[in-house]
C-alpha cells in the first residue's frame, strides 16, 4: 500500500534489508585449531590452522575479542597482524594439556603438548573494529 509521504516507508524497509544483508555478508564463521609442542622447556613446534566454515556452526557466542579493523577484510591477514593478542585470547579458552616426562638413569626428557581442538568462531567485520566470538557448543 502506498503511503501519504510517497514511498518513504518502503525506502526505509529496503534500506534496512540492505544494511542487514551487508552486515550478514561481512560476518563469517571460521574453524580454528591451535597446537604447540614444548620439548625440554624449549618451544619445538607451533601451528595455527584457520579455515572458513563450509556449513553453519551451532553454538552460542561466549568469549569475545575485539580487534581494530585493518584495510583488508581478510580474517587470516587480520590474525597475522594481531597474532600475539589472538594467541592470548585462545589461551583463555579451554585448552587440552598432554604432558609426558621420562627419566632414564637420572636424565629427564619432557614433552608438553597444548591443543585447542577445532573450534568455530564467529567473526564480524565492522567499520572500525572486528569482533571475534568463540561459539560455545550447547550442552546436550
Amino acid at each position: 500500500m502506498r503511503s501519504r509521504d510517497g514511498n518513504h516507508s518502503f525506502t526505509l524497509r529496503l534500506c534496512t534489508i540492505i544494511l542487514l544483508s551487508s552486515l550478514a555478508l561481512n560476518a563469517g564463521e571460521y574453524l580454528i585449531s591451535y597446537k604447540y609442542i614444548v620439548k625440554n622447556n624449549v618451544l619445538f613446534n607451533e601451528s595455527l590452522d584457520i579455515s572458513k566454515s563450509m556449513q553453519k556452526c551451532k553454538g552460542i557466542p561466549a568469549q569475545t575479542l575485539i580487534l581494530p579493523a585493518t584495510k583488508q577484510k581478510n580474517f587470516i591477514q587480520l590474525v597475522s597482524h594481531h597474532y600475539n593478542e589472538f594467541i592470548d585470547y585462545i589461551h583463555r579458552l579451554s585448552l587440552d594439556i598432554r604432558s609426558k616426562d621420562t627419566t632414564t638413569n637420572n636424565q629427564i626428557n619432557s614433552t608438553t603438548i597444548i591443543i585447542l581442538k577445532t573450534t568455530c568462531f564467529k567473526v564480524d567485520f565492522n567499520d572500525n573494529f572486528v569482533k571475534i566470538s568463540h561459539l560455545k557448543q550447547p550442552y546436550n
Binding site: H91, R92, D96, I97, R98, D101, T102, T104, N106
Partner: peptide, 18 residues
C-alpha cells in the same frame, strides 16, 4: 642397569590467567 620413571598428565584447563 636401567632405571626409568615415566610421569604423564592429561587435563583440560580453562580460564587460567597470566
Amino acid at each position: 642397569k636401567r632405571s626409568t620413571v615415566r610421569t604423564s598428565v592429561q587435563a583440560m584447563v580453562r580460564n587460567a590467567n597470566i
